[in-house]
Design a protein around this nucleic acid. Sequence first.
DNA 1: CTTTATATACATACTTGAAGGTATCTTTAC
DNA 2: GTAAAGATACCTTCAAGTATGTATATAAAG
Lengths: 211, 211
Amino acid sequence: MARRTKQEADETREALLDAAEQVFLDRGVARASLDEVARVAGCTRGAVHWHFRDKLGLFLALDERLVLLQDEVKDRLCIEEDGSLQSMACAITAAMKDFEENPRRRRLLTIMLQRCEYVAEMAPALQRRRQADTEIRETLRRRFQEVAERGDLSPAWPPERAALFLYALISGLLHEWLRGEADFTLSGEVSDAIRSFLDCVAARPVSGGEK
Amino acid sequence: MARRTKQEADETREALLDAAEQVFLDRGVARASLDEVARVAGCTRGAVHWHFRDKLGLFLALDERLVLLQDEVKDRLCIEEDGSLQSMACAITAAMKDFEENPRRRRLLTIMLQRCEYVAEMAPALQRRRQADTEIRETLRRRFQEVAERGDLSPAWPPERAALFLYALISGLLHEWLRGEADFTLSGEVSDAIRSFLDCVAARPVSGGEK
DNA sequence: CTTTATATACATACTTGAAGGTATCTTTAC
DNA sequence: GTAAAGATACCTTCAAGTATGTATATAAAG
């Protein structure tokens, strides 16, 4: 086919990414074929190889989409923060709600966590994931640090431990939830549980006892 | 080659499973070839297809190995249990230590969690994993139930929530630890953190304040 | 106790098919 | 006119499946 206008080309690129999202999700990255991605996007492999170097390139571009979404959350966690555990709980609840309401986000995370094997030529993707995770943990640690400096953190919970703990907790719950038939909701039970946890690590109760 | 004695054949089967463990671990299940598995085991693909129907069959046999190990832990969690949070903490600490000391266990879990894509023909494997996880959660729930009946569980933590929480926590920490360069140890920081958590959910302190 | 038949435990070879990479062709925007 | 934006076609690789070869363990028959 012929040369398209620049806007049309960008649309093609987005269509390819959308298609990759879908195909990777139900075939897994390794078993997904570029041909199917192209057909779902309404074009051919020629277009794929024009916009992306190879399958890894396509995958990394998809990962970039998720990184952008994660950065949004991270920023919100920083901005809305006033140094209280209360505000941390709010920010995390908001993030959970976002996962439920933004299907793209859910699909992308499912792909990165459960639809690919980080091995061999996928190594650069692994690095990216690791870095993103490290940044989140570090952000959490800084928040807990601030809480501690206010004297609102129980001495049994140094900021590092609290951050690792909360990160692992959220990560574990997300894993379980992403598998599909979870018997809980992120904005419901999970947010409640996290509030309960934040109550635990508080030097003094934050949510007024039984709220 | 010729027919081997039954014992030799069993040894071959074990060698193939060991080889699969290694090859799956560093190539990922999807990219691993049965030919390489066979060569690592010191035989050919003929042997693989004799002992296992296909790659999925080989994978399921590997999974069975892990299920057996997990059942051991589950049984220990039931046997050593006297209904106190203290004994739960001990059982979990023992399980963590086991992960550190039993390399096969670590490799198997890494494969099941991070080296395969549960999709399409891998569906039966996914079911097996889900069932194993459900059993663990259910076991934890029953333990918490017993603790609650003794009046030792904080009313803020119904057994279901506590079980889901602890399961997610351990799962998240294991995921992180399995990725390789974790900045913590299972028998050290993780066990400590879990004890801290169990202190949180206790109706009254269990480890004597600052132990 | 020997012989014989048969199933066992693989090895080897052949076929098939899917997928990725690359090269070339075709329009058309700029 | 030239380079962008793909389509089409070709080639190669690689792995799974299958079929068949083959020597021997083993159990049954004599």
